[in-house]
Amino acid sequence: MTEKCPSCGSCGMPLDRPDDHACGDVRIPFCRYCTDAAGELRPYDEILRMNADHFVRSQGVHETAAQRMAAELLAGMPAWRDHGTRGHAV
């Protein structure tokens, strides 16, 4: 987002404090939600579902629309930009 407030390279969540990063490690460019306990990026399908579920909870949109918005959001993220052409997660 900005130098002051970077964002997760997988879902775009602001990383404005160390514990927002995976494992609390500011060198990892992903958030704690998109990564597992070891700081590894979770599979694409899992992150897609997490984001869609979050959109349903936070904005009350229909599940189908939430899935579509999540897919469009992830398509623009560095971690998933080539996902559609490779057919599997990074």
Binding site: G12, P14, H54, F55, S58, E72
Partner: peptide, 19 residues
């Protein structure tokens, strides 16, 4: 559609902080 996604993403950031 990409424009609506941008607007939705902006709103999502605000929704997250409000929540």
């Amino acid at each position: 559609s990409p424009v609506r996604t941008t607007l939705f993403t902006l709103q999502n950031a605000v929704a997250f902080e409000i929540s």
